[in-house]
Design a protein around this nucleic acid. Sequence first.
DNA 1: CTCCATCAATTACGCATGTAAACATCAATT
DNA 2: AATTGATGTTTACATGCGTAATTGATGGAG
Lengths: 121, 121
Amino acid sequence: MAVSEAEAAVMEVLWRAAPRSAEEILAEVGPAQGWQEGTVKSLLNRLLKKKAVKAEKDGRRYLYTPLLSREKYVSQESKGLLDRLFDGRVAPLVAHFSEQRKLTKKDVAELRKLLKELDDE
Amino acid sequence: MAVSEAEAAVMEVLWRAAPRSAEEILAEVGPAQGWQEGTVKSLLNRLLKKKAVKAEKDGRRYLYTPLLSREKYVSQESKGLLDRLFDGRVAPLVAHFSEQRKLTKKDVAELRKLLKELDDE
DNA sequence: CTCCATCAATTACGCATGTAAACATCAATT
DNA sequence: AATTGATGTTTACATGCGTAATTGATGGAG
């Protein structure tokens, strides 16, 4: 079962710093998403069921820690999109953004650097 | 309302060639996805409701044509992923694929070419 | 004309999701 | 010990999705 988008918002908090209590997570994600307590609790429980986080007791409450790494999650999502829309190839994806003028100067500079580094191998 | 993944599979058929009848669409997408008639009809109707396709009567049946372009769909999906996972910047996305060794020789060659063309502007 | 075959439209159903209320537990306070 | 406040657990409910069966319309065969 995949981690949904709302669940991912909770994961993001945990990826920034963990372990965290439900209260801390709510404080960080609640306002931005307009969520309240029950919602965050539910998301945490679904993440537990999906083995994307684990919880350890800390006195009266629990502290949550990610089990699924951000790297892994990002990989899955990215690969999914790439396969579905660009036949699994990266260059067409970048070409797409280029056509949409979504490449900033900084992007271009970084891409150049990246390619140069690939050369030096 | 967003076009779902199953719906997108139907759109792909129409993007390849349109207008098409439900029967033709089924023939092309059914076997690959393991769908049968009713499923494809439902998806077509949902796409109609979402204004992603239009239908025009052709004798006893309908011919379907995309209203949503593939370009636009790809843009929405790509931008969504980019914003959610890479803070809206392209270079980190490519760096990610590079680290995952998902860049083929061909990708690298094409990226080089792309950057060169950007130079010539 | 009536009946059948062919399409499309409607309805259905289980599961995931987003969102949250209700309930349970338990430590701390009165 | 009883109450309260903080937390976590369970249940709920509307919506969307994947999948399909059922119903409805309509043009062609007899």
